[in-house]
Computed example of a mutant assay.
Amino acid sequence: MGNKGSQFAGVTVALVTPFKDGAVDEAMLRKLVDWHVEVGTDCISPCGTTGESPTLSHDEHERVIAIVCEQAAGRVKVIAGTGSNSTAEAVRLTERAKADGADAALMVAPYYNKPTQEGFYQHFRTVADTVDFPIVLYNIPGRTSKNMEPETICRLAELEQVVAIKESTGSIDQASAILADCDLTLLSGDDSMTLPLMSIGGSGVVSVAANIVPREVKALVSSFAEGNAAQAKQMHCKLFPLCRDMLSLSTNPIPVKTAMRLLGHEVGDVRLPLVPLTEVEIATLKRTLGSFGVMG
């Protein structure tokens, strides 16, 4: 386990953004924060991919983070999504999140413009030099189109502000290289990879499934952290079909928002260009939720 960023170990929920009549549903957002405090989620991460940050306006993005920080009120840590493919905007969002009382910034690698490895380094270094605030790197080449190589990540780990990484490459080799060569706290960015990554030194997960079954995700992480690998494996196998549906039925967060509505959390639908699940996909999801035991 990395020494840096260990305060962010455990379960961080990649929080959905609830919508109602086309706008952010602020009352529901506050309810979700209260629910995660109640069930023991360790951290909340608003305005990531699962929070539909690409289709939030700048005002909405800042408002969602402010509400989550205000409602959390120190009862649960907040790792605010402040990444951008514009370095100046990433600085601005991070400054705002710090002012609003977040505990750290979750910063995705700049997407679409495909920086070089030096570009990645200078991007994060600029934010770190400008804002004295803990940064959790987020590497997800499936969405950004470019991998941040382990060497770049370990170079960034030398910066005091860079404390952890959300690892979403799906590569045990990449995660192993990071854990071998720097002291960052490593968090899984994919629910199905949580146990494999913890087995090589990871410290938890930034979880989509925790929007639906936070207690069960916490049970997996806690079991392994406490040395009960057999129980963690049991939870992994129980959670796997649900984790698989969250990513394979359709693009995240379409399935998780659908599941939340089916289970009584009125979070609204996704925004275009994302579209709802088909009836066939909904039937599959209902079967999975039924098998898991959360839906009759």
Rank of each mutant, 00 (worst) to 15 (best):
S84T: 09
T41H: 06
K218G: 14
G83K: 05
M235K: 13
V64N: 08
A102R: 00
G101C: 14
V78T: 10
A219S: 15
A259T: 01
I79D: 15
N147T: 09
G189I: 06
E52K: 14
L106C: 15
A90E: 07
N113H: 15
L184P: 02
F19R: 02
D103Y: 05
E62L: 05
C154P: 05
K238S: 08
V205S: 08
G202Q: 09
Q161W: 07
A175L: 07
V131D: 02
M198K: 05
E118T: 15
Q122L: 01
I153T: 10
L56F: 11
L239P: 03
A225Y: 04
S6R: 11
I254L: 08
A104I: 09
T284Y: 09
C47F: 08
G142T: 05
R125C: 00
R155I: 07
R96E: 06
V162G: 01
M148E: 13
E95R: 07
R244N: 10
A175C: 12
L239S: 04
N228A: 15
A102G: 01
E52F: 14
C243P: 04
S57G: 13
K114C: 13
L239K: 00
V37Y: 14
L274H: 05
P241L: 03
E149N: 15
Q231V: 12
K4M: 03
E95N: 03
D34A: 12
Q7A: 06
A88E: 14
L247M: 12
E95D: 08
S86M: 11
L239I: 02
I200L: 06
G48C: 09
F120P: 03
L249G: 02
V256A: 06
G202L: 11
N85L: 10
E70S: 13
I135A: 00
H58C: 09
I178E: 10
K146E: 13
L242W: 01
H61Q: 12
E26W: 02
T284E: 15
H123I: 01
V280C: 00
T144L: 01
R143K: 10
P46E: 09
P46W: 15
F8Q: 01
A232D: 10
Q234I: 13
T288D: 00
W35K: 07
E60S: 02
E149R: 11
D132C: 02
P276A: 05
L15T: 04
T251M: 08
M260T: 08
N113T: 07
S222N: 12
Q7E: 07
P134I: 13
I67F: 04
V91C: 00
T12Y: 09
